[in-house]
């Protein structure tokens, strides 16, 4: 079986690292492709989900980091319930996203997905003056996202329709009273935990 690719020792450690961080037994994947069969996003993915697992097994870190697949995975867990080896591929995808972010290697084409996630979480910390700690805030979030991407007009009509129906409050909810500051502290701890 000399044609089968085998990972070298140092490459195998990449697989081990991702296995540990994602808590998923990546090395037991035998490429039955059941996960890919049910994946609703595979039509725009550069690599099928099981291909990413194979690349991890082979230690092809750069290829994995450059792929759009982890960024397009929506975490629907179809793969997770169908895998005969109990692998939750979406957790592997989340781990790859976190690693590429930590190493600052996000593919440029997917920067806006990362941006959206960051702004979403940021909006939970609340805004100066108007506040809103702890809750999602559609108007502020969409405004920031559009400002950061320069994409001002997409969904403008939808926003108007939503506002007309009283579905987009213009100011954020200020729900935290007695427990004010708890969310900010949680985010603060998250930041400290990430610092090397």
């Amino acid at each position: 079986m000399s044609t089968v690719k085998q990972p070298t020792k140092d490459k195998a450690s990449f697989c081990q690292e991702i296995e540990e961080k994602s808590h998923q037994p990546i090395s037991s994947c035998y490429h039955c492709m059941k996960c890919a069969g049910g994946c609703p996003i595979n039509f725009v993915m550069e690599h099928n989900n099981y291909e990413i697992l194979r690349m991890i097994q082979l230690g092809e870190k750069d290829k994995v980091y450059k792929s759009n697949t982890p960024w397009l995975c929506v975490g629907c867990k179809t793969c997770a319930v169908r895998c005969p080896n109990g692998i939750d591929t979406s957790k592997v995808m989340d781990t790859i996203k976190m690693e590429t972010m930590a190493e600052d290697k996000i593919p440029a084409s997917h920067y806006n997905i990362k941006l959206f996630y960051e702004l979403f979480l940021d909006s939970m910390k609340g805004f100066p003056i108007i506040g809103g700690e702890g809750r999602g805030y559609e108007v502020g979030l969409m405004g920031l996202y559009k400002f950061c991407t320069g994409d001002f007009f997409a969904d403008m009509n939808l926003g108007k329709e939503m506002t007309k129906r009283g579905k987009m409050p213009f100011l954020p909810h200020n729900a935290l009273k007695r427990r004010k500051g708890e969310i900010k502290k949680i985010f603060q701890r998250a930041k400290e935990k990430k610092a090397p």
Partner: peptide, 22 residues
């Protein structure tokens, strides 16, 4: 009372601690 947003996809895609703590 005083519930918070669970962080949704943005949480579990970007931060292991936030994904649980929120």
């Amino acid at each position: 009372p005083e519930w918070n947003c669970c962080g949704a996809t943005a949480g579990h895609s970007t931060d292991r601690f936030l994904a649980l703590a929120l």
